[in-house]
């Protein structure tokens, strides 16, 4: 098995939105970051993978198996954190443990209790009495406690303070250490991905616009900043996207080293995922 997730020509149509012909291969042992604007289709993609919504067209394989035909076997090995979808809030972590014991074959009470302790969560506190950050931590603890092989996480770090966030990211890094486990996570906090993701998938307006390894992006993409008058001197083939301001302009380039040699009098910065997102979405071509 090479790929944990394989998506072919996935289409999901709504009245006012369409997830358009997504092809995706998520290699086993990787952390893949899913980025995009609000409403770009990240959650729709994640819900499609989990059969929470029915796809209009296409083909999805998880662990090399058809995701509908083998749904039950597959889902025994998946852990999820979804945005605003969890246990009824009147329940407590203790209740969750009692329930999950019967749901997942490999539910590990000891690990669950250990996570609760590490995260400083009380067993008897009802979910509705927890802060947003505590709920997120509980959701993450729950997702990890049946020894899943694949984690599908929608905004798992939102609402967490920087200290807990780095704690959680360490857990994720640890999780893939055995090279068998895989993580797909969507996030707005792109700096998290710069630290841990092996691969970045960028979705905009229902279409996949970028699917590259993090190193490829960090090493090769850059922003060329120049005076607005200078813009016309730049070879159009070198421009991926550009954004013109009143006096200057920013140009997204995907081969930073060549560009540095070619335009020696321009400032060319390394890219952050945030800048990449803004330029890809808002920039012109």
């Amino acid at each position: 098995m090479k790929n944990a997730i394989e998506v072919k020509n996935l289409v999901k149509e709504y009245k006012d939105f369409k997830l358009d012909n997504i092809n995706l291969e998520i290699k086993k042992g990787c952390i893949v970051g899913l980025i995009g604007e609000n409403g770009a289709g990240k959650t729709t993609l994640i819900k499609s993978l989990l059969n929470i919504i029915k796809i209009s067209k296409g083909n999805i394989k998880i662990f090399d198996k058809d995701y509908i035909k083998n749904e039950q076997i597959i889902k025994d090995d998946i852990g999820v954190v979804l945005d605003n979808m969890f246990f009824p809030e009147i329940l407590s972590p203790k209740d969750i443990n009692l329930i999950m014991k019967d749901i997942f074959k490999k539910w590990d009470e000891q690990i669950f209790n250990k996570y609760l302790k590490d995260f400083g969560l009380s067993k008897n506190k009802k979910i509705k009495e927890m802060s947003k950050g505590m709920r997120k931590k509980l959701e993450i603890a729950t997702a990890l406690s049946h020894h899943p092989k694949l984690l599908i996480l929608d905004e798992p770090t939102s609402g967490l303070d920087p200290v807990v966030r780095s704690e959680v990211l360490d857990i994720f890094l640890n999780f893939i250490q055995n090279e068998e486990n895989t993580i797909l996570l969507s996030t707005h906090i792109t700096s998290d991905l710069e630290n841990i993701a092996d691969h970045i998938v960028f979705i905009d307006n229902g279409k996949k616009v970028l699917d590259k390894s993090r190193d490829d992006i960090i090493d090769n993409y850059g922003i060329l900043k120049c005076d607005i008058k200078y813009f016309d001197k730049i070879d159009k083939n070198d421009i991926v996207k550009y954004k013109k301001n009143k006096y200057d302009c920013q140009i997204l380039v995907d081969n930073i080293n060549e560009i540095r040699n070619k335009y020696k009098d321009c400032i060319i910065d390394k890219i952050t995922l945030d800048d990449l997102m803004v330029l890809m979405v808002k920039g012109e071509k």
Partner: peptide, 21 residues
């Protein structure tokens, strides 16, 4: 009321990710 709690916290979407089906 158990249905109300389910709806309020989107339990159904979450439960569908379980192997129960």
């Amino acid at each position: 009321t158990t249905f109300s709690y389910d709806d309020f916290n989107n339990w159904h979407a979450y439960a569908i990710t379980f192997p129960s089906g």
